[in-house]
């Protein structure tokens, strides 16, 4: 009887211990998944709009989950404080000037917070607040890029139309244009136009690609931050755009010179030109290119103010300054 009872108790003990172990293991498992047991530190970011982000959502750094969203609170209209609970081990990788943005981890998946690590020397500390890029900013970047693309495309079309006409030597203007210094000037302008056209085409292409990628990818920001190849594409695009604007500027000055000559000399060609449709067209082109260059400049300005490209422009500005200083020194 005693023996039997001892046996029973041993079995019962085994049963209870196994059950308790299973419970503890599963609790630990879930605890680690929602990082309840590892040491954490908390940082905050203030968003304009969190797009349905909620407590418990994941925080990504370079595509790795490093923490969870601790709380989401509206402080006032257009200001939402999101506190992020991050694993202690990860704080070495996040700098003081890091920024946070909101992304999504799947087509219908949960919202996530993506952290861009930043590059300052100071490492982030507990209770720090980092910059937040609201989803609206993402949209702005896409809009800017689209605008650039459209503008450059319209310039190209205009240029094509005029260069076609000029090449075919349509009308009196054509004949006139094919001879003399006048013609040379105009030809120069046209070739410059052509060059611009090619450049702008290229830029437009790059931007379009970028936009496509942004639209079909997982949000422009995470991709830009997480993938270096995208960064280089973006930089190249910016360089192209910059060239376009420079070309357009030089173009417009040369065309201005042409029109000035025509207008001041007041000769037959001038009269003819100012009276014909061609003259109007030429004027329109000039206007377009001017406005295009202005727009491009505006866009560039926007890019300059954007966090992504700010660093690039700052470096660029420094380089320009140096380039300016060197010639003056050599003088």
């Amino acid at each position: 009887m005693e023996k039997n009872e001892v046996k029973q108790r041993v079995k019962l003990g085994a049963f209870v211990i196994t059950g308790a172990l299973l419970l503890v293991v599963s609790l630990l498992f879930i605890g680690t998944a929602s990082n309840l047991f590892s040491k954490t530190f908390t940082i905050a970011a203030i968003f304009k709009n969190v797009e349905g982000l909620k407590e418990g959502d994941k925080v990504w750094l370079s595509g790795v989950q490093i923490g969870t969203v601790k709380s989401v609170r509206i402080v006032k209209v257009g200001e939402v404080i999101v506190s992020l609970s991050l694993k202690e081990k990860q704080n070495d990788f996040i700098r003081k000037n890091a920024s946070a943005s909101i992304g999504s981890d799947g087509l219908i998946g949960n919202r996530i917070v993506v952290i861009q690590p930043g590059n300052s020397k100071e490492v982030i500390k507990d209770a720090d607040t980092i910059k937040a890029i609201s989803p609206a900013d993402t949209q702005e970047i896409i809009n800017i890029a689209k605008e650039v693309g459209e503008n450059t495309r319209s310039i190209t079309l205009d240029l094509k139309a005029i260069s076609d006409k000029v090449n075919k030597g349509q009308g009196i203007i054509g004949e006139l244009l094919n001879e003399g210094t006048f013609a040379k000037d105009i030809r120069k302008a046209v070739s410059s136009f052509k060059a611009t056209g090619d450049q702008t085409n290229k830029a437009a292409q790059s931007l379009t690609n970028l936009i496509d990628e942004a639209q079909h990818g997982k949000g422009i920001l995470p991709t830009l931050i997480n993938d270096t190849s995208f960064v280089s594409v973006f930089k190249q695009t910016l360089i192209h755009v910059k060239k376009v604007s420079a070309n357009a500027a030089s173009m417009s000055t040369s065309i201005e010179a042409v029109t000035a000559k025509i207008n001041t000399k007041n000769n037959a060609v001038g009269v003819l030109l100012s009276d014909t449709v061609a003259a109007a067209e030429l004027k329109a082109i000039i206007k377009n290119t001017e406005s295009a260059s202005v727009k491009l400049d505006e866009n560039l300005e926007a890019f300059k103010h954007n966090f992504l490209t700010r660093g690039y422009f700052r470096r660029k500005a420094k380089a320009d300054k140096k380039a300016l200083q060197k010639p003056s020194e050599s003088k």
Partner: peptide, 16 residues
Amino acid sequence: WRETVRQCFEIGNRSL
């Protein structure tokens, strides 16, 4: 106690 433990065995282990 003893009976409770015995019942735990009957109920727990025997149903497992």
